[in-house]
Design a protein around this nucleic acid. Structure first.
Length: 162
DNA sequence: GCCGAAATAT
DNA sequence: AATATTTCGG
């Protein structure tokens, strides 16, 4: 969401983040309707493209209408995280067993999971440090010793600061 | 370009 | 407050 339709930065950035829409504030009910429409269409594998930007100043009657400025074609497939690891899709074949939970298009923008330092993890962390010696304990080695696949060096470096 | 520490940002 | 990301030498 942005307030300034002229700033190209807004859209550029949005695009990088796989945004589908750009909304101009203030948002009005129609904007939300448009989004809804787009989502519904996406479920059917369609791509909605609409562009009805309005910039006329005739906003005398109360709420100014902001509008969708830009629509990026959205892919339907679930986006998997950008690691180089193989994706493993557990295909549930045959008769109806679609995992209800949260499939399909809601995974549009996948965020990196924020790692939470459970006492478990912290213990591994501590052990690793002890095992390395307080002088050799740098993020990279700690990471190796801990051997926790989803952890990244940055995670550990960050945790190290705490 | 990778790394670690520190500084910032979210 | 907890984590993440960026910045800054090396």
């Amino acid at each position: 969401m942005s307030r300034d339709s002229r700033k190209k930065e807004v859209m550029t950035k949005s695009e990088e983040n796989e945004a589908t829409h750009c909304l101009l504030k203030p948002i009005c009910a129609d904007d939300l309707k448009d989004i809804r429409k787009c989502v519904l269409a996406a479920r059917k594998g369609k791509v909605v493209i609409e562009n009805e930007s309005r910039n006329s100043e005739g906003e005398s009657s109360g709420a100014e209408k902001s509008s969708i400025e830009y629509v990026k074609p959205c892919e339907l497939s679930t986006v998997t995280h950008g690691t180089k690891k193989k994706k493993r899709y557990t295909k549930t074949r045959s008769s109806g067993m679609y995992n209800e939970n949260q499939s399909a298009e809601n995974r549009r923008v996948q965020k990196k999971p924020k790692i939470v330092w459970t006492t478990q993890l912290h213990n591994l962390f501590m052990m690793a440090i002890k095992q390395l010696g307080y002088d050799k304990a740098v993020p990279k080695k700690i990471l190796e010793v801990m051997n926790v696949p989803y952890l990244t060096r940055g995670n550990i470096a960050s945790h190290l600061q705490v």
